[in-house]
């Protein structure tokens, strides 16, 4: 991993059009600004990890028949 030292208001360029700006350092909190083209997705790492874990959980679940019954009772189809 590349390690760089930066001070507040200094930044790092990733390629030509992604800029990471250190805005503020307060205790163990770092406020970071990101300038990136709209087509570059930017996520908190935990968010992506959480979604991956939830997909894993969804793929290894018990059979959904009982769940379907509960849904049918709770949300009956409107009668035509």
């Amino acid at each position: 991993m590349l390690v760089l030292n930066r001070k507040p208001n200094q930044s790092i360029m990733i390629g030509e059009d992604i800029e990471v700006v250190i805005l503020e350092v307060k205790g163990d909190n770092v406020k970071i600004g990101l300038k990136a083209p709209r087509n570059v997705p930017v996520f908190r790492q935990e968010l992506l990890a959480e979604l991956k874990a939830e997909n894993q959980r969804a793929a290894s679940q018990a059979s959904p028949e009982a769940a379907a019954q509960l849904l049918k009772q709770a949300f009956p189809k409107p009668q035509a």
Partner: peptide, 12 residues
């Protein structure tokens, strides 16, 4: 949307 059904289906 993906639905996760745990052991107690009411908790889906």
């Amino acid at each position: 949307v993906l639905v996760t059904v745990p052991k107690d289906p009411a908790e889906m």
